Amino acid sequence: MLEAPFPPLDPNGNTEGRGPRLSEIPMRIVIPNLITVLAICAGLSGIRLAIEHRFEQAVAMVLLAAFLDGIDGRIARLLKGSSKFGAQMDSLADIVNFGVAPALVLYLFMLDQAGSFGWIAALIYTIACCLRLARFNVMLEDPNQPAWQGNYFVGVPAPAGAMLVLLPVYAGFLGVIPSKALAYGTAGFTIVIAFLLVSRLPVYNGKTAGSFIRRDFVVPLILGVVIYAGFLMSFTWQTLTLTALGYLLFLPFSAMAWKRRFAAEEQKSSETQA
């Protein structure tokens, strides 16, 4: 029988085998889960808006879901409110927000013109996203993984995959007219992104950047964020298009950095054993 996320109260006071009784749940545990629920609402609202052919708002909802997904875990760690229930809920939210929602938005915007081939591409992307998230959860439990490899994702992460797969939609907002030929090309592009999700491609995740930065980097970093945010608000689709293309160009360099680090670690290990 499945256990509830929090043990129920027994009116007779019997707590044997149940762990501690919780009559009140701390808000520090509830708040991250509320953010995850809001992310799910954003992803599902994106699907509804796409059905109503309000595609710009639909993409905005998917991007909002990605933003909320990016902060819920950090807020949980900041508040010391992480829980197994929250982790499982976050994974299910990722399937909706970065698998189902982008695939349906892209299908309704363009892939439907490719008929069954377009639908198959959307299915492949969604299933690839599910497989990628399942593999990520399993790898978190691997005690034998070297610490330095934690600085890399295995395959493109699901939020980045959602941003990439919507690239044809950004192009459509910039004036590219959807056509049947373009729809078939988009279907092929969608399948490529799906394979990037489930690939073994090492993708740098930035964890080695640490929690502190050099004092002389603070002002340039703040200015860079402000400039990017300004372009994102003023030239939204142009900025997202360049961001997606830049991310694709970044992937080969990430793989080369991983290979250099792997070779260095192997050499260090052989010297230690010698």
Rank of each mutant, 00 (worst) to 15 (best):
Leu2Lys: 10
Phe6Lys: 04
Pro7Asn: 09
Asp10Arg: 09
Asp10Val: 05
Arg18Tyr: 09
Arg21Leu: 13
Arg21Trp: 07
Ser23Lys: 15
Ile25Trp: 03
Ile25Tyr: 08
Val30Thr: 13
Ile31Pro: 07
Leu44Ser: 09
Leu44Trp: 12
Glu52Asn: 09
Arg54Tyr: 00
Phe55Trp: 09
Gln57Glu: 13
Val62Trp: 00
Val62Asn: 02
Leu63Ala: 12
Phe67Gly: 09
Gly70Thr: 09
Gly73Thr: 08
Gln88Tyr: 12
Asp94His: 00
Val96Glu: 14
Phe98Lys: 01
Phe109Tyr: 13
Met110His: 12
Ala114Gly: 13
Ser116Cys: 02
Phe117Glu: 07
Ile127Met: 05
Ala128Met: 02
Cys130Pro: 00
Arg135Trp: 13
Arg135Asn: 03
Phe136Trp: 14
Asn137Arg: 14
Leu140Val: 10
Glu141Lys: 12
Val156Ile: 10
Pro157Ala: 08
Ala160Trp: 05
Gly161Lys: 07
Ala162Pro: 01
Val169Pro: 03
Gly172Ile: 07
Leu174Phe: 07
Ile177Trp: 09
Ile177Met: 08
Ile177His: 11
Ser179His: 01
Ala183Gly: 04
Gly188Ser: 09
Ile193Tyr: 10
Asn205Gln: 11
Lys207Asn: 11
Ile213Cys: 07
Arg214Gly: 11
Asp216Ser: 09
Val218Glu: 08
Val219Ile: 15
Gly224Arg: 04
Val225Cys: 08
Val226Gly: 05
Phe235Thr: 06
Leu248Glu: 05
Pro252Val: 08
Ser254Cys: 10
Ala255Leu: 04
Ala257Cys: 01
Arg260Lys: 15
Phe262Met: 06
Phe262His: 12
Lys268Val: 02
Ser270Ala: 15
Ala274Val: 03
